[in-house]
Amino acid sequence: MDLKSLLLQKKSPIVKKWCDVVLSTYPQQSQKFLRKQKDQFANPVGRTIFEGIESIFDELLHEANADKIALFLDNIIRVRAVQEFSSSQAVGFIFGLKKVIREELEREILKEGVTEELGAFDSRIDALALLCFDIYTQCRQKIFDIRVKEVKTRSERLLQMAGLAYELPEDYEHPGKGGDLKEGQVNNKC
């Protein structure tokens, strides 16, 4: 039996254990809620984890389409990027899958001689971690961008009113392309 078949056979316990790895990063007293509340609007964090982890595992087994995986990962990481985690803690759960697979398929791996396949599958998991890292940094960058934008938005109208906002005239062409201010053209907003 090949590794894919073994993983499919044990999909349910593997996914469950991998979810446990993610849940274990949350405070103990909240884990029950994250696990038990099935309503996706009452418990968006928990449901996103359960649905996302299963979908990611499915995708890893089949096409391993990075675009699809990125969508599921994004849902999980986007929240973790603003939660109580260091960067490594936010994305570290990915590596938990390696351990879970070895625990679940310990005997079968030796018996069926699929170590080479497992090595290849591990590489997929490593790639998944890198993807995760990309998403995490994008999320953090977005937070910083939003902070900057917010400061600008809050003061923009007031700066305009005070005549302190600098705006290029509509017909302004970039200097160097023969676009210096022409006669009679004034940047009166600066």
Partner: peptide
């Protein structure tokens, strides 16, 4: 990886 996940500090949440 296991240490990484376990390293999450739950102490400050203790309110049980």
């Amino acid at each position: 990886p296991e240490e990484l996940v376990k390293d999450t500090d739950h102490r400050r949440y203790t309110l049980g």
